[in-house]
Simulated scan of single mutants.
Amino acid sequence: MRGWKTILFLIISNTFMTFAWYGHLKFKDYSWGKHLGLFAIIVISWGMAFFEYLFQVPANQSGFKDNGGLFNLVQLKTIQEAVSLTVFMIFTLVFFKTEKLGWNHLVGFSFIVAAVFIIFKK
């Protein structure tokens, strides 16, 4: 159960972080965001990133083997990267409909999935 909690929290965390890093690129599509300056965008993104940390820190705390979790540090980071790319790909397809994922993106992502398998191999 603890492993699934870690993964779920990393998914939530990466969702907030993806919106903080890339969501602001859509602000101009809304009347309230058309004239925001860079500083305002940074503050809004930073506010979103705060929520990322509310899930990322507990995910790593509970998932780390030295704290009774299932994963070593390299495994935690590998899970986080795979989750991050998965969340990013979904975000891109849903919110940036003009962006297309090509075969090369899918092959690259497959290599990352293979890396997860290799890193978890005993």
Score class of each variant (00 low, 15 high):
M1K: 14
R2W: 14
K5I: 14
I7W: 04
L8Y: 05
L10G: 02
I12W: 03
S13V: 03
N14L: 05
F16W: 07
T18N: 11
W21D: 15
L25I: 14
F27T: 14
K28N: 15
Y30C: 13
Y30I: 08
G33H: 04
G33E: 04
K34Q: 13
H35K: 15
L36G: 03
G37L: 05
G37A: 05
I42S: 07
I42W: 10
I42L: 09
I44F: 06
S45Y: 01
G47C: 09
G47V: 10
F51W: 10
L54C: 13
L54R: 08
L54Q: 12
Q56F: 15
Q56N: 15
N60M: 09
S62Y: 13
L70D: 07
L70Y: 07
N72P: 00
L73M: 05
L73D: 06
Q75V: 00
K77Y: 11
Q80H: 12
Q80R: 09
E81T: 10
A82P: 05
A82D: 05
S84E: 13
L85I: 12
L85W: 08
T86W: 06
T86F: 10
F91Y: 15
T92Y: 06
L93Q: 14
L93N: 13
L93V: 11
F96G: 04
K97L: 11
K100C: 04
G102M: 06
N104G: 10
V107C: 00
F109M: 01
F109C: 01
F109P: 01
F109H: 02
V113Y: 01
F117K: 10
K121N: 11
K122T: 10
